[in-house]
Design a protein around this nucleic acid. Structure first.
Length: 466
RNA sequence: GGUGCCAUCGCCAAGUGGUAAGGCCGCAGCCUGCAAAGCUGCUAUCCCCAGUUCAAAUCUGGGUGGCACCUCCA
């Protein structure tokens, strides 16, 4: 496995700290609103990564957090006149359901900030004890960025010149303007907790470091996790601060490899509420099947920015259609799983920093070759078994193609229409048998007019929703 | 202003020194009663300029054009 480390900016061979085992941590959502396509992309990328690592034989411990302590959650609760828990439960559930529709497997551990407070207290205390954090008069606890000489080494930033000026002018209690809150002293009754530092809320960055310590890190290891992932926009300040906390508060670095996925843009622009072009996953799922969205969102390399367009999505779907047509062709045949050269090649491509384009090209070539061979030798059982094994392998590693192929082509067609189609096809077959081709064509046009394509095969006439 | 990313066929998109993968669209053919599906074949020298090299889409320098981060953000 080769992974591009976005901190070192090089692709290098992945070597886990403990042989055969991978600790993977990914920043999950803050549950204050519906997930948008960007959340989907991130979840999909790291779902793919965990699948590929497992296919390579690694035992993976995948942790993805739920941030359920945040100012935005409080704001939302106030707006909707609901309590905090109602909001976080609602969006946690919808997130989980929507990810499931995309074929994203649940991570092994999904810790919540509200359940990780003890670990946060412990980390904050350690930082204070070691002189990397300080408490202000008003009760806030800040991380002292000037105490960490490796600060900004992750995001490769340069300390702002006006940093010092700000410090003088600002009435803030911070020692440096880049210092960030580990604990915010609040006692307004909304989402506050009792801590050794008084009532308040933890800072956002603290939870990830704390959860990693709690669930993944080993005291003696050099890195708390093997791979830390998240969206590219989290690099700074979130990951920078996480890394600083862990580096200063514990005996290890945070991550051996950092992976950041690119953005999903709409019309070339980043999605944002102010631009009014946010595309919620729930809305996309009403129009397109989750599996098609999965295929589309994964079809471009994870580090590239992704420009979402419905037109591209529909074109991309045709690629998935080909997979299902082959699957349909071999429907009902029992398989004994066999390993093939194709599977090795596919894994090699994906093992190269998740080179999905090469992987999809291999799949397309495999499909063409399989169709051709099946045309020439329709009774070759051994070959059919190999093809089915290849399809099953793709389903497991890439997570698409899992549906019944007939149902896939009939998505969104109701029972009454299905019966109507069946009777029209039956009538057309009769007409064809009687060599009344004019009548057969009329019937076919009628079928076409309801948005359905038909195809005659040796096994009978099949139909697909266009 | 600071930092960084990107620029490959009509569209999407691999490829980081050895002579341009794949998909969609298009054209031709096979198959088909005709179609559809499937299969076969055809279609780019890689934004511009200069340089390094036997050899560059791939390295270096300079342009031009996109985009992102620097505030919450997947």
């Amino acid at each position: 496995m080769f992974i591009y480390d976005s901190v070192q900016k090089t692709k290098r061979e992945f070597v886990p700290q403990e042989e055969g085992k991978v600790k993977l941590y990914v920043c999950g959502p803050t549950v204050y609103d519906d997930a948008h396509l960007g959340h989907a992309k991130s979840a999909l990328v790291f779902d793919l990564l965990s699948r590929v690592l497992r296919a390579e034989g690694y035992e993976v411990t995948y942790v993805r957090n739920i941030t359920d302590i945040d100012d935005k959650i409080i704001k939302k609760a106030q707006e909707q006149n609901k309590n905090i828990k109602e909001i976080t439960d609602f969006y946690t559930t919808s997130y989980t359901l929507e990810m499931a529709k995309l074929g994203v497997k649940q991570p092994d551990i999904e810790p919540k900030a509200t359940e990780s407070l003890e670990a946060m207290f412990e980390l904050i205390q350690k930082l204070i004890d070691k002189g990397h954090a300080y408490k202000t008069k008003s009760g806030d606890v800040y991380f002292d960025t000037s105490s960490d000489n490796a600060y900004l080494s992750l995001s490769h930033r340069v300390q702002d010149e006006d940093d010092k000026i700000q410090r003088v002018e600002s009435s803030s209690e911070k020692k440096n303007s880049s210092d960030f809150a580990l604990w915010k002293s609040v006692n307004d009754g909304s989402l506050t907790f009792e801590s050794p530092f008084g009532y308040g809320r933890p800072g956002w960055h603290t939870e990830c470091s704390a959860m990693i310590e709690k669930h993944l890190a080993k005291e003696e290891s050099k890195f708390a996790v093997d791979i830390h992932g998240g969206g590219a926009d989290l690099m700074f300040p979130h990951h920078e601060n996480e890394a600083a906390q862990t580096r200063c508060g514990t005996n290890h670095q945070l991550a051996a490899y950092w992976m950041h996925n690119g953005f999903v843009n709409i019309n070339g622009e980043k999605m944002s509420k102010s631009l009014g072009n946010s595309f919620f996953l729930k809305d996309a799922l009403q129009i397109y099947d989750g599996e098609i969205l999965r295929f589309y969102l994964l079809s471009t390399h994870y580090r590239s920015n992704f420009n979402f367009s419905e037109e591209d999505l529909l074109l991309c779907k045709k690629r998935l259609d080909k997979f299902y047509r082959l699957k349909k062709r071999l429907f009902g045949i029992k398989i004994t799983f066999t390993r093939s050269a194709f599977q090795d090649e596919l894994l090699r491509a994906l093992g190269d920093d998740l080179n999905i384009s090469t992987a999809l090209a291999l799949i397309d070539e495999m499909i063409s070759y399989s169709n051709e061979t099946l045309d020439n030798a329709p009774k070759n059982k051994e070959f059919k078994n190999e093809v089915l094994s290849n399809l099953a392998y793709i389903e497991e590693v890439l997570g698409f193609g899992i549906k019944n192929p007939f149902e896939y082509f009939q998505l969104g067609v109701d029972e009454a229409t299905k019966q109507k189609i069946a009777s029209l096809i039956e009538a057309r077959s009769e007409a064809k048998k009687a060599k009344d081709f004019a009548a057969a064509d009329t019937l076919r046009n009628e079928i076409l007019s309801i948005g359905v394509n038909i195809m005659d095969t040796p096994e009978g006439t099949f139909w697909e929703k266009i």
